[in-house]
Amino acid sequence: ESFPLSVLVHCFYFRGGAELLFDGVKKHQVTLPCQPEPWDIRNLLKWIKQNLLKERPELFLQGESVRPGILVLINEADWELMGELDYKLQDQDNVLFISTLHGG
């Protein structure tokens, strides 16, 4: 059985701003369509690349993961604690992408 998932994808992305990559929108309430296999972060990244990223995906992605310097948080916890790419998304999950800041 599978249902469409409603997931909040929140992008804190800099360098010309989130606006460059995600059309200036920080919060995306996305509905992931039904698919045979469960949605995990690996699939979500592919979906984001196809549906949200306007240009220059290399500023956000590297291989099948995010590029170095971007922290992924699932429900406000480091994705490393949740299984990283293999984490199975649940309905109403909150996924945050944060690029680390270096200025001061």
Binding site: F14, R15, G69, T100, H102
Partner: peptide
């Protein structure tokens, strides 16, 4: 531990360029 690899240089914005 958090950032084993540094970010690609052209993805880094400083305060002079990005403002603060």
């Amino acid at each position: 531990c958090l950032f084993p690899e540094p970010p690609p240089p052209d993805t880094v914005t400083n305060c002079a360029d990005g403002g603060v």
